[in-house]
Design a protein around this nucleic acid. Structure first.
Length: 535
RNA sequence: GGCCCGUUCGUCUAAGGGCUAGGACACCACCCUUUCACGGUGGUGAUACGGGUUCGAAUCCCGUACGGGCUACCA
């Protein structure tokens, strides 16, 4: 929470120096290395909200020449999903947002999986108990349920285990020291709960929202250490952020309510001065409230970064990658979902984002995801992409559909010709298929009604001319074509469309003569002959 | 129910006391194009409501309404 005014006066006396540094640096701890983390639980899938958190973490870290850490929060063993952790790495890799430290990338603050850090949490929990900030609770799940039932009233539909209730429960606060010790020695299943002050104002400064206040009287005694010995998120996030020297903690808005627990824990553990700066990111909304993976299936757009198949149900959730998005576009539209640089620029490369991103310009309100706009970003990126960078993606796409062994120079020409009309990578299939496959079907409605012997004769003349043509280039083909229309007193407009249908099969695609040039003499003439027989 | 957060065109947003409230997506029209796109020009369209403060409010304050999040031995 250091602001520019809190910094050393000497710095503040050099205004022209300050003008040279971006304003978003003003909130930095000048003496502390920037270290941020993304801490997903590997329970399957990585949706837009999570990916945007990754992005903002990444951008912030790179901008400040800091470290981006991936920590796996796998403290809930009952929710273990095989493959989910690998899936997270795959998504980060595809989107180009790879961490500097992680379970697989290594680093000097490991281990980076919470399940592998299990034994370090218990001692902190015990320290809290010894210092009077936490206590052992022996209540069984049945007893907790009974409590919630017994204390439920109309004005309090969901009673919490809090200061008003805890003295009526079975814990080390209500039990004598002897009884507690006896239960502990007998390995009785128990948890450790934080002892929230009865009433204390807790506040902190959020980088996006400013000052936020809570009264501890309305927050419950959260479980810190579970009966299986694993920490809950609340304990683990504080202990790990501290031991991994995290300087800034960014997470979704859904964590705002439990922030006071974390703030107090930083204080109780004696680490207050090392507490990271917080930023709670606005939610990404779907058509009906918070974006869920259900929305994807329901409205036909992807919500995950990459395809995810639930190993239990075999249910597929579509990913942006497989849908045909470029990672550059994916990053670009996510960045703009809740942030802008104050200008009217919308297309940003990753490098530009690293340079221009600032947490202070992130919105505090949720943003509804607009798939149409996302597609527009992708279209823009495809248009501005170099042919070469699209090459492997397109040839993979075509080979998947059975078209392989394409001459690389032909492929490049084709991509250059059609990329402006492709919104998704997958559009390249429809837009370029006819270059490689002779049409089997024709849009006959576009040609049949006006087809006649004069046109038929015209095309036989074209065949004769083209067969003798030595210079097979678009311009020559067009010149010859028009000469023959003149000789035969036909308007070019009347035969241009039929010619297109012959080569393409439908009313779309780049200029016909460009297509003919790429097709080559033999194939072009073959297509004309084949079509004449059908028309 | 309680607590917390939020509210500018349909959507993403700009404007942090002084404007005809700007841009982008989508939509519509026209131009370009002897196909479909790209591109260009123009158009429809918003400060949730009610009170203050002020010469002046989208902007600051209060209230109301609405939306969202949390309220687990899940994260």
């Amino acid at each position: 929470m250091v602001r520019i005014s809190d910094l050393h006066p000497a710095i503040c006396l050099i205004p022209h120096f300050l003008c040279l540094i971006p304003s978003n640096l003003s909130l930095l701890y000048m003496d502390k290395r920037v270290r941020v983390r993304f801490a997903p639980s590997p329970t399957g899938g990585l949706h837009l909200g999570g990916m945007r958190t990754v992005l903002y973490n990444y951008l912030f870290a790179k901008q400040h020449k800091g470290d981006f850490i991936l920590r796996i929060e796998d403290t809930d063993q009952s929710r273990y999903v095989p493959g989910a952790e690998q899936y997270i790495y795959d998504c980060l890799k595809w989107s180009g947002l790879e961490p500097d430290e992680s379970p697989v990338h290594g680093g000097s603050y490991g281990p980076y999986r919470q399940s592998e850090r299990k034994n370090i949490y218990r001692s902190y929990a015990e320290q809290l108990v010894n210092d009077g900030y936490a206590y052992y609770a022996f209540d069984t799940p049945e007893e907790l349920e009974k409590m919630r039932h017994d204390f439920k009233t109309e004005s309090n539909p969901s009673p919490q285990y809090d200061h008003s209730i805890r003295m009526k429960m079975r814990n080390s606060l209500t039990l004598s020291d002897d009884e507690t010790k006896k239960l502990l020695d007998a390995n009785t299943r128990h948890v450790v709960r934080i002892k929230m002050p009865e009433t204390e104002a807790v506040s902190f400064r959020d980088m996006i929202r400013g000052e936020i206040h809570f009264d501890t009287s309305v927050v419950d005694d959260k479980v810190l250490l579970k009966a299986d010995g694993m920490p809950t998120y609340h304990l683990a996030v504080v202990v790990d952020d501290y031991s991994m020297k995290i300087s800034h903690a960014f997470r979704g808005e859904e964590w705002l309510s439990s922030a006071p627990v974390h703030i107090l824990l930083w204080k109780y553990l004696g680490w207050k001065k090392d507490m990271p700066q917080w930023a709670h990111l606005p939610l990404i909304l779907g058509p009906n409230g918070k974006l869920s993976k259900r929305d994807g299936a329901k409205y036909g757009f992807p919500v995950f970064a990459m395809n995810w198949i639930d190993p239990k149900t075999n249910e597929l959730t579509e990913g942006f990658k497989e849908k045909g998005f470029l990672p550059e576009a994916f990053i670009n539209f996510m960045a703009l979902l809740g942030w802008n640089d104050g200008t009217e620029q919308e297309i940003f490369s990753k490098e530009e984002l690293i340079q221009k991103f600032s947490m202070e310009r992130v919105h505090s309100s949720g943003a509804k995801f607009d798939y149409e706009k996302a597609k527009w970003f992708n279209h823009e990126w495809i248009k501005k992409s170099e042919v070469q960078s699209l090459e492997s993606g397109v040839s993979f796409l075509l080979s998947e559909k059975g078209i392989s062994d394409i001459d690389i120079s032909v492929l490049r020409k084709v991509i250059g010709l059609v990329k402006d009309r492709c919104t998704l990578l997958s559009d390249f299939y429809d837009q370029s298929l006819f270059f490689f496959l002779t049409p089997e079907q024709y849009d006959l409605n576009a040609v049949k009604p006006k087809w006649n012997d004069a046109k038929k004769f015209f095309f036989s003349e074209i065949i004769r001319n083209y067969e003798l043509n030595a210079d097979w280039t678009a311009t020559t083909l067009e010149t010859n074509f028009k000469e023959i229309t003149t000789v035969n007193s036909i308007k070019p407009g009347e035969v241009l469309l039929p010619f297109r249908i012959m080569l393409v099969g439908g009313k779309f695609g780049p200029g016909v003569f460009d297509i003919a040039e790429i097709l080559g003499k033999e194939e072009t003439i073959h297509r004309i002959k084949k079509a004449i027989a059908v028309f």
